[in-house]
């Protein structure tokens, strides 16, 4: 069985050396090329067509996300495994959107890189377990935002209050605009939220958005 051909891109030589040593120590893998910025990684990987590119996210010049996107466009058979020092979930989403098949934190590289390379080479995807938990829970949360119940009948006033609240107005401002008291606004708000099963201001905004009430005039 032939070895997995791995390409390494990282702007820090010391990290690159470590990655190479680690990969080359595996009986079923070999490093076939390396680059120290995104542009070189893209050009070289296009020519070498490795099975997996281990791509640092933050590199000077063309960054990892852009190099990943280009590689995915031009040679979709090359699997990209993103490697980063950033633990923010936002980078993960950016890289996955760019087409990376896996995402490994540098902190855990010794434990996970080899497994991740094998996984993505076999066509799977691999995300650092600590990050994966966060991503999943935030998707679940976004998905179950309240207010999916059928539209209950709102009175005209309730609808006015809801629209204004969704536009980011305070109770005091709503009261002034509708020429009613702040207490009345509060009462309307509690009632309309109950009717629609909304639990927070974020729910109110989402509801208004679905009703098409937030389109600009």
């Amino acid at each position: 069985m032939s070895k997995l051909r791995v390409f390494v891109a990282d702007d820090h030589q010391i990290v690159r050396e470590g990655l190479k040593a680690l990969i080359n120590a595996q009986p079923d893998m070999e490093v076939v090329g390396e680059a120290e910025d995104g542009g070189a990684a893209w050009l070289l990987a296009k020519r070498l067509l490795p099975d997996v590119v281990v791509m640092d996210v933050s590199m000077p010049g063309m960054n990892g996300a852009e190099a990943t996107a280009r590689l995915r466009d031009e040679c979709p058979q090359v699997r990209v495994l993103a490697l980063t020092i950033y633990e923010d979930k936002g980078y993960l989403q950016q890289l996955l959107k760019a087409g990376a098949a896996g995402y490994v934190l540098k902190r855990a590289v010794m434990e996970e890189l080899v497994r991740a390379v094998r996984t993505v080479a076999a066509g799977g995807s691999y995300v650092d377990p600590t990050l994966a938990g966060k991503v999943v829970s935030s998707y679940i949360r976004q998905d179950t935002g309240g207010g999916r119940q059928p539209v209950a009948e709102l009175s005209e006033r309730e609808e006015q209050v809801l629209r204004l609240a969704a536009w980011g107005h305070s109770n005091k401002e709503i009261a002034a605009k509708l020429e009613i008291s702040v207490k009345t606004v509060e009462t309307y708000k509690v009632r309309l939220m109950e009717k629609l099963g909304l639990r927070s201001r974020a729910d109110i905004v989402r509801y208004a958005l679905r009703q098409g009430w937030l389109q600009e005039d």
């Binding site: 820090h12 990290v15 050396e17 990655l19 680690l22 540098k106 590289v109 010794m110």
Partner: peptide, 18 residues
């Protein structure tokens, strides 16, 4: 912190593991 120190810490950790 991220780009200089962080990368070197990564290298250090790889070294320790080896």
């Amino acid at each position: 912190l991220h780009d200089q120190l962080g990368q070197r810490m990564t290298a250090l950790m790889m070294g320790l593991k080896t």
